[in-house]
Write a protein that binds this DNA or RNA. Structure first.
Length: 1066
RNA sequence: GGGCGUAUAGCUCAGCCGGUUAGAGCGCGAUCCUGAUAAGAUCGAGGUCGGUGGUUCGAGUCCACCUACGCCCA
């Protein structure tokens, strides 16, 4: 006996039970340690300082499904362990918020030790929720986690730093970085992109610079422009005090115009956009080059950087540079090297002057102007006002444009020239590109598209962060920076300082206290920077094993990974850092296969975010429909690379469509198998029917298809193939074979049906196990494990099904498809004639356009008769005089062969009619060529190049599609009418039995009465009384009014009604 | 400004090497089938396949340009 199956299953409850069983039987641990051949997986570490969300569900589901598949194939999964990303600015920001801090000085006052202690704690804030979530969604991982803040992990990253250092790949340079004044740190490119907006409202000001003098040698215009104004445009007035030059485009045309009594200079192409029409007259025209060397009066005096000496002669002049465009502005560009134009400044020997400090506030040197100490954006109006009062403002307004913001704290960012540390990834561009070619990307276009493109445009990796909670960069330096060493291990550091550091916390501030006196260079102190936290996660292939200090063998085996999976935002994040570290250190990719997931959107296509309030919590979905339903939806709804819209309703649909269909098929099987006390592997003889062979052929084809798709990491195709099969199993195989399960004899035919359905269910449970681990487990356990002590106790410990090639049968599958087409057409024809399927009909005519199709139908003619409730199937051939024929070319074949002749050919075939068409149709059916004149020449078409269609015979209901025509004889004879009436009665009685709540096996005493169709009822029962009794388990049948205690229902019957009365027989 | 992707029914999505009447599911309406079914079948309403041009005998599909949206980069 199988455990009875509840048809009203509640999946969330079922899943909880399975979880408990897994727990009690240690299934996860057994799975984690099973297998032989290694399959290597890297877990992209999340940070547990936020709650797990839907996007985590999707990535973890896609990770899990592949790992389960490989595990069932007998692989041992390496790296199936938790990993936690613990460092970085996001963590610090959280703590700062909590403490109400507004920048680095607050942290320093508070104390780095305590601050970092809080950071370390906070990354575990939601760890319990993560653990519960991981378990609940059945993402099987070992809890033996790698943690990026642990000393061992840090030591491994130090080893990497040292490798890079020894090869000269670590360097320090001035670069303009995006600087967040609130966080007090540079942001990496990928961080900048996270917070940039392109609809930022900013000032748009046109500033006048008064020309005064020239450099030597003087420019072409010489002194003639003295006291004219060069007009420049900017959206960042706060950078104007840092101005050191004005740039023009060397070959562009510039004009001197007269406007309101002043002479203004700007690009000819832009003057109409800057000044109102007819408010100016053009005085002169120049080339940009003619202006180079003009001097102008500075608006303000900028502040030199600390310790810098400035040659003021080099400042406040006109230069020509490539960066000038004529797309907007005035064609004259204000240059402030400190805030973005550093390269230009270098090229032209300009000084670097500052107006705003790293804290984002206007420098105290501007005190007398009244805006010192103001936040830079807030100083904009003051500066504009100041210039206006001095008559130097031509125009001001607002503009919407792109501007970057801190992705964490939303503070506007500064372009700021700072010194920082870099990894010279650009030196390895060719290797990065080449190694990428070895990676199998899903979807494919990421490889040469988004990711390949990113590698092509590679820039050096800014690795240092002037922060606190992160991997300390292991570089020690003396006071003047003339001597630096990079430390590659704890042992090396111990040797330097001459004491044990075993109990030290490698984080700041403790590591900063580790100093030593170098006899030649003085006191060696660590640089204050910590590493970009992307460096941590990118180093995980090495650091998760504490390589090379431990686990050398594990690392060698587990690099590169066979498979990783994250969302598309990681192209510039983890995918890149993994790839970069691996290429630089080992010159090979870090992973072989990667599924790159699209983002999840709400039902309106909007990104889910807390601020929009459209976030769906995974728990909400899981509580309603269960994890299997959610997972199934994620796998089947869209190819993984697409962005996907999500809603609860879609998960519900997914559950009904697949899980319930599967469950009901399973419940049906168990119900009848238990009634018959059926056992698997009983050794009883089975008389296998064609439909059984069809089911097994389709099943084995499914195994093949799912396996093939998995090998390509095509989860979407694999899942949809399963769904399609389950649908056919339920709605064709089970529906067609119900009677074989019902019938009372336990013969070989019934045995075959049981065996077939059992095999299908067990195999599907295994195929579905990676996708829907819970329901698969329940089905497998009830059907297999609980009856067979030798079978693996869990479906997840079972072996992946293999294809039984002997059972594959393409012909059978194709023939069944033909049958299904014919059935569908027959139903359509019935609908047209308004003849319900219960009403038997005498005959059906069928025409198939190809022999293959025809043979398919012939093979299953009995099924066709039964499905469509017709007495006979007849075949129309070209000899039948009842129909007209239409001919069409088979374009796929004919097109290539005849090219331009195709339209004429099509017309010529279409114009055939009557006997000519019939003759052609006969030829095609006989496999002979058809000759016909086209465009004055004789064309010969092979039989397969012509498609024959036929019109409906008179008096028939017809449906046609997919090369097949079905015509039903609609004449209902008296005999057919009685038979239809009998089937109506059976149907009504069954319905009444069900409504009355009778058990399937209950016997009844039946009462039938019809006031207005008494004759029909009598005639029907005279002929079909026994049939009706038999079908409905009636031990007695009376024509007459039922007793008062009978259950009664009245239904349409003939042109009147019939009343059914039921009393349970004792 | 550049790159990548997406655009097909009210909604979610398929659509292969270019080929005959562009499909499925959901939803809606109608009918039917059903003693496994929270199911299923048939029919109907609902499509300028984002737009314009091109290649071709033939374009949802290939090419070019454009538009909108998303992501990434500047």
């Amino acid at each position: 006996m199988f455990k009875p199956v509840d048809p009203n299953v509640k999946f969330p409850q079922l899943e909880e039970d399975v979880l408990a069983w897994w727990e009690a039987n240690d299934i996860v641990a057994k799975s984690l340690t099973a297998g032989e051949k290694p399959f290597v997986f890297y877990e992209g570490p999340p940070t547990a300082n936020g709650r797990p969300g839907l996007h985590h569900t999707i990535s973890r589901s896609f990770k899990d499904v592949i790992l389960r598949y490989r595990s069932m194939q007998g692989y041992r999964i390496i790296g199936r362990r938790e990993g936690w990303d613990t460092h970085g600015l996001p963590v610090e920001i959280e703590i700062e918020k909590k403490l109400g801090f507004s920048g680095k000085p607050d942290i320093e006052r508070f104390g780095i030790a305590e601050f970092n202690r809080l950071c370390r704690e906070s990354v575990w804030e939601y760890i319990q929720e993560w653990k519960a979530f991981t378990k609940r969604i059945a993402f099987w991982l070992s809890e033996d986690a790698y943690i990026t803040y642990e000393n061992d992990y840090i030591e491994s990253t130090w080893w990497i730093f040292r490798q890079l250092w020894d090869r000269g790949l670590l360097f320090r340079d001035y670069k303009v970085t995006m600087h967040c004044p609130r966080c007090g740190t540079s942001l990496s490119d990928h961080e900048v992109s996270l917070g940039a907006r392109d609809d930022v409202d900013d000032p748009s000001v046109y500033i006048k610079f008064r020309v005064k003098g020239t450099t030597a040698p003087p420019p072409a215009v010489d002194g003639t422009l003295n006291d004219a104004f060069l007009v420049a445009w900017t959206t960042t007035p706060w950078t104007l005090p840092a101005n050191v030059a004005l740039a023009v485009k060397h070959d562009a045309e510039y004009v001197e115009v007269e406007h309101n009594g002043e002479r203004l200079v700007m690009a000819a192409a832009l003057v109409d956009q800057v000044l109102p029409a007819e408010s100016f007259t053009v005085l002169r025209r120049f080339r940009g080059n003619d202006l180079v060397g003009l001097r102008y009066e500075p608006l303000f005096r900028g502040v030199p950087g600390t310790g810098d000496t400035v040659d003021w002669e080099t400042a406040y002049r006109v230069i020509a540079d490539e960066i000038v465009s004529l797309d907007d502005g005035t064609g004259i560009v204000h240059i402030a090297p400190a805030y973005g134009d550093l390269e230009v400044g270098r090229k032209h020997g300009l000084p670097t002057l500052f107006s705003v400090g790293l804290d984002g506030r206007v420098l105290p040197e501007f005190a007398e102007l009244g805006f010192a100490g103001k936040f830079f954006k807030e100083a904009d109006p003051d500066i504009t006002r100041n210039l206006k009062s001095r008559g130097l403002l031509l125009r001001s307004g607002r503009v919407r444009h792109y501007y970057p913001f801190c992705w964490r704290c939303s503070t506007p960012l500064l372009y700021y020239a700072k010194r920082s540390w870099y990894i010279r990834t650009t030196a390895f561009k060719a290797d990065l590109v080449a190694n990428n070619q070895q990676i199998h990307w899903v979807p494919e276009h990421i490889r040469d598209g988004r990711f390949g493109n990113w590698l092509e445009n590679n820039i050096d990796w800014a690795i240092s962060r002037e922060r606190y909670w992160g991997t300390p960069i292991p570089i020690w330096t003396n006071a003047d920076g003339s001597h630096m060493v990079c430390i590659g291990s704890l042992a090396e550091l111990e040797e330097k300082v001459g004491r044990s550091l075993r109990d030290i916390d490698l984080h700041r501030p403790y590591i900063d206290e580790v100093v030593w006196e170098d006899p030649n260079h003085g006191l060696m102190r660590r640089i204050p920077d910590v590493a970009d936290c992307w460096f941590d996660s990118g180093s995980m292939p090495v650091a998760q094993w504490h390589y090379p200090f431990e686990n050398r063998d594990v690392f060698e085996m587990a690099h590169p990974a066979d498979y990783i999976c994250e969302a598309v935002d990681q192209t510039r994040g983890w995918f890149y850092t993994l790839h970069a570290v691996s290429t630089l250190l080992f010159d090979r990719p870090a992973f072989k296969n990667v599924i790159c997931l699209g983002h999840i959107l709400d039902k309106d296509g909007q990104k889910m975010s807390k601020s929009r309030g459209n976030v769906i919590e995974p728990q909400e979905v899981i509580n309603a429909y269960g994890v299997d339903a959610l997972r199934w939806y994620l796998f089947t709804a869209a190819p993984p690379g697409n962005a996907r819209r999500f809603s609860m309703d879609l998960v519900s649909e997914s559950m009904r469509k697949f899980l319930l269909t599967l469950w009901n098929t399973y419940a049906f099987f168990v119900t009848y198998a238990n009634l018959d006390q059926w056992q698997p592997n009983s050794g009883r003889t089975a008389e296998v029917q064609p439909i059984d062979r069809w089911a097994l052929a389709a099943l084995n084809q499914l195994v093949q298809n799912v396996t093939d798709a998995f090998e390509e990491y095509d989860v979407y195709t694999a899942a949809n193939a399963i769904e399609h099969f389950v649908d056919e199993l339920s709605n064709w195989y089970v529906r067609r074979n119900r009677r074989r399960f019902w019938k009372s004899e336990s013969d070989a035919d019934k045995e075959a049906a049981y065996q077939t359905l059992y095999t299908c269910l067990v195999t599907v449970a295994k195929l579905a196990a990676p996708f829907t681990p819970f329901v698969s487990e329940v089905i497998y356990r009830n059907l297999v494990a609980e009856h067979d002590a030798s079978a693996p106790e869990s479906v997840h410990l079972a072996r992946w099904p293999h294809v039984d090639r002997a059972l594959l049968d393409d012909q059978l599958v194709a023939d069944t498809e033909a049958l299904l087409t014919a059935v569908s057409l027959g139903r359509a024809a019935r609908k047209q004639a308004n003849l319900k399927v219960r009403q038997p009909l005498s005959e059906l005519w069928l025409r198939a356009s190809t022999p293959a199709l025809l043979n398919g139908v012939r093979r299953f003619e009995a099924e066709l008769r039964d499905e469509l409730n017709v007495k006979a199937v007849r075949y129309l051939d070209a000899n039948s005089a009842v129909v007209e024929y239409r001919l069409k070319p088979n374009l796929r074949l004919v097109g290539k062969k005849f090219g331009k002749l195709v339209p004429a050919l099509t017309a010529a075939l279409r114009d055939l009619s009557g006997d000519t068409a019939r003759a052609a149709a006969q030829a095609v059916e006989a496999g002979q060529p058809v000759r016909l004149p086209v465009d004055g020449q004789e064309i010969e078409l092979l039989a397969e190049e012509v498609l024959v269609e036929s019109s409906a015979p008179e008096g028939y209901a017809v449906a046609e599609a997919d090369g097949m025509l079905v015509a039903l004889n609609t004449t209902v004879t008296e005999e057919l009418r009685l038979e239809g009436a009998a089937r109506d009665l059976v149907r009504y009685i069954q319905e009444a039995r069900k409504s009355a709540g009778l058990a399937i096996s209950d016997r009844i005493h039946l009462f039938l009465t019809s006031a207005d169709e008494a004759d029909l009822l009598t005639a029907t029962l005279a002929k079909y009384g026994d049939y009706v009794k038999n079908e409905t388990l009636a031990v007695a049948l009376d024509i007459g009014t039922p007793p008062d205690d009978a259950y009664t229902e009245t239904n349409e019957f003939g042109d009147g009604t019939v009343t059914v009365g039921i009393v349970v027989a004792r």
